[in-house]
Amino acid sequence: MQDELELIHQMTGPELIRLAEALGVPLTYRHVSRAKIENDLVQALKLHWQTEKGKPVQKLDIPALKISNLHKEFGSKVAVANLDLEVHPGEIVGLVGPNGAGKSTTLRVLTGIIKPTNGQVTVNGYDIRKEPVEAKRRIGYIPERPTCYPSLRVIEYLTFVARIYDVPRINALLRIREFVSRFQLDEFLNSYIGTLSKGNLQRTLLAGIFVREPPFILALDEPIYGLDPRGAWSLKSLLRELRDDGSAILISTHILEVAEALCDRFVIMNHGKVVGTGTIEQLRESNPGATSLEEIFLMLTGGIPEV
């Protein structure tokens, strides 16, 4: 988390009051400067963290995400065939493939939206079918086509998510402020989600994911979708930070430049099957002649088209 003083400094008046309530800081003065409140809150926060010190730090299981022999059929159509995949804490894995390769289906299965026909998915050691609530408590998902409840305000959505994921109130207030600032959502905090542009909706959903407490297990389907260059840059640097802090991230994307710059390992899918896997170096070795992820991808999914 960012420096608390800085976060408190960025907070709006109502946010400061809410934080004071949560920390039990009395606001009984008739007139008081903002600096004084900020100072009191920082002191109270320090005390609060001291009491929290004894609590165990959350760590992810190894592997954080495990897909074993996943098979998914829709009627007679095989969407995913016998997929094995692991994502470890501290790595970003890119799931790449052409349209209809089975990437989104894989993410929908591992987030518990749909059931696999066969196979097993564990999230932080919890089987998504047997202990779905525990598994879902840890995973964060951004879909390919983001939507959200149009009648909620942005701030309501963020506090809603914090509550659903059991984020303690003080942490939630600080984290909401941190990610509202990071994704430049300040001016939209009181806007109805239904009135947001595509990019701002994506930022809101991302902020909703990061309001939860790290480390994260993320399943992101085209996370850059709709973001402007600044937003995209901000997200990419955040994902790298999270990886370095021990989060496990699985990204499904078509944008191979993004994948190549961001991911540590790749799983390339075509027609529901894995056709290539490994780091960029390993993929280059197994596909002689290919120099970039784009060329490897094209070679593995039907060949490089002749110009």
């Binding site: 939206i113 609530v133 995973i139 998902y141 983001p146 939507t147 409840y149 998510v161 059991d166």
Partner: peptide, 15 residues
Amino acid sequence: LESSDEHIMMTAPVR
């Protein structure tokens, strides 16, 4: 259920 639930509520730790 509605379309937004697919990635918000259906993936959340809610029964």
